[in-house]
């Protein structure tokens, strides 16, 4: 194996149609990063996004529906993860995104990055999240009072 191969970042992208426990997935991902505690990456950045309990107009939210474009959504997430990992020189990236009907409080997205320093780890998480919010094909529909409304755009940063 040459140096280029061994330094390639480890990328893991998953689209899930069932509820997931972000901390359990994070723990499993961390255990794959290092055979021993001493091998652990020096820095990790994590982001967990959850469904808020109200709609964009302030009404109580019953559920959020997430639609994807099977095939393209995963391809785009992979491409975004690879590009961000390359730009920041990080060692590993995990991206998990929910689809289907998601209840308030449930996790919708998990992004984790392992790197040698906090700067690249945190910057890569933030950039990857913004990239996926704008360039990975997913669409949200808010359900409230029995009516579904497609969300027109992303919430402010």
């Amino acid at each position: 194996m040459d140096a280029a191969t061994t330094s390639r970042p480890r990328l893991e992208v998953r689209i899930l149609s069932r509820p997931f426990q972000p901390l359990a997935l994070l723990e499993a991902w961390q255990s794959q990063s290092a055979a021993t505690a001493a091998d652990s990456p020096a820095a990790e950045g994590h982001f967990i996004g959850r469904v808020r309990g109200s709609t964009a107009s302030g009404a109580p939210l019953e559920a959020l529906e997430l639609e994807d474009y099977p095939g393209m959504s995963e391809t785009q997430l992979q491409a975004i993860a690879a590009a961000c990992a390359g730009r920041h020189g990080v060692g590993a990236v995990l991206v998990v995104h929910r689809v289907g009907r998601i209840l308030p409080g449930e996790a919708i997205v998990l992004v984790a990055v392992a790197a040698d320093r906090r700067g690249p780890a945190l910057r890569c998480v933030a950039e990857l999240l913004e990239e996926l919010k704008h360039h990975a094909p997913f669409w949200k529909r808010e359900w409230s009072g029995g009516h579904g409304t497609w969300v027109a755009g992303n919430t402010p940063l």
Binding site: G49, L66, D68, Y69, G71, M72, T75, H97, I108, V109, L129, L132, K133, H134, H135, A136, P137, F138, W139, K140, W150, V151, A152, G153, N154
Partner: peptide
């Protein structure tokens, strides 16, 4: 998107292509 990749709307299409029209993306 043409065959799962973003493309300009004036791209000439080829037989067998899959063309998707994507409304504003709201994931994450």
């Amino acid at each position: 998107a043409i065959n799962h990749a973003f493309a300009p709307a004036d791209t000439p299409l080829n037989p067998g292509d899959e063309v998707a029209f994507l409304p504003p993306i709201t994931g994450g």
